[in-house]
């Protein structure tokens, strides 16, 4: 499919800061654990369960409170669930790939499955951050010891030290068999996480 269909004629509404008060009331626990559809429903995602956890820091090394994190990833077979892939034999009916949580403190823990390798891409999860003081910022997190990392086009636009910041650290396994990965995000300043965009300046 083409990347852009149709002429762009309308001027976009400006993004704006989320402010400090994104309603916790809108929380949806089924978006915080993608390994199953819902705690009370039979329906498991295929693949290796993982826990991605970490902290979001500001420029002064303080935890960034009140962040809204969104996650987007392929299933264990490396396939994203979009209208384009609906009906594909590798679609996992119990895995959508879109997650969301709001962290009061700036520390987070997201449960999912290890994404597969797809096309030319190493396993990765897109992480979108909304919070007070900023508009949306976006990055991708990768996993250690994946041979596909060497040829990944996103990792390959980065310097060696930037690459390291996007590769999560393995931190053992939980009693119930989930592999734990640590991924801290530094929004600004020393050790800043690389963020990505598709608008040119």
């Amino acid at each position: 499919m083409t990347q852009e269909t149709g002429q762009k004629t309308l001027l976009p509404t400006n993004e704006d800061t989320t402010g400090p008060y994104f309603p916790i009331y809108f929380r949806d626990e089924s978006l915080e654990d993608l390994t199953r559809v819902d705690a009370g429903v039979v329906g498991q995602a295929k693949g290796t369960p993982i826990i991605l956890r970490g902290r979001v820091f500001d420029r002064h090394g303080n935890l960034a409170n009140g962040v809204l994190l969104e996650f987007w990833q392929a299933n264990a077979k490396g396939l994203y669930r979009t209208p384009e892939t609906e009906g594909h034999t590798d679609i996992d009916p119990w895995f959508n790939g879109y997650g969301r949580l709001r962290s009061a403190s700036g520390a987070y823990s997201f449960r999912s499955i290890m994404p597969g390798t797809s096309d030319n891409r190493a396993p990765n999860i897109t992480v979108t951050i909304f919070s007070d003081g900023i508009n949306r910022i976006v990055t991708q997190v990768f996993f250690p010891d994946q041979s596909a990392n060497d040829a990944d086009p996103v990792l390959n636009v980065l310097t060696e030290s930037e690459r390291h910041r996007l590769i999560a650290k393995h931190d053992g396994r939980t009693a119930d068999g989930a592999e734990v990965y640590l991924f801290d995000i530094i929004m600004a300043g020393d050790g800043e996480t690389p963020f990505f965009d598709d608008l040119q300046s």
Partner: peptide
Amino acid sequence: NTSDQRTPRQRLKLIP
């Protein structure tokens, strides 16, 4: 102040 604390200082990377 929050914008100062949280706005990335590096240019965003263009998505390949």
